[in-house]
Amino acid sequence: MDVNEFLESDVRVVNIGLESFARELGERGVPTVHVVWAPRAANARIRDLLAKLGS
């Protein structure tokens, strides 16, 4: 399937990351599932403590 064919077909979306993308697609009637995901603790100090505390 080429890109044009793909975009003209019924799209179903699995969205990872920013929830607003999923919300906007949903408002336009696109079947969308949002996966809650965020990078591991962003703060280096906290990441270090979490590793030492067995997380």
């Binding site: 809650v36 965020a38 603790a41 906290i46 979490l50 997380s55």
Partner: peptide, 9 residues
């Protein structure tokens, strides 16, 4: 609290 910080949730 570890899971809260690990996941950011």
């Amino acid at each position: 609290i570890r899971k809260v910080l690990e996941t950011g949730i």
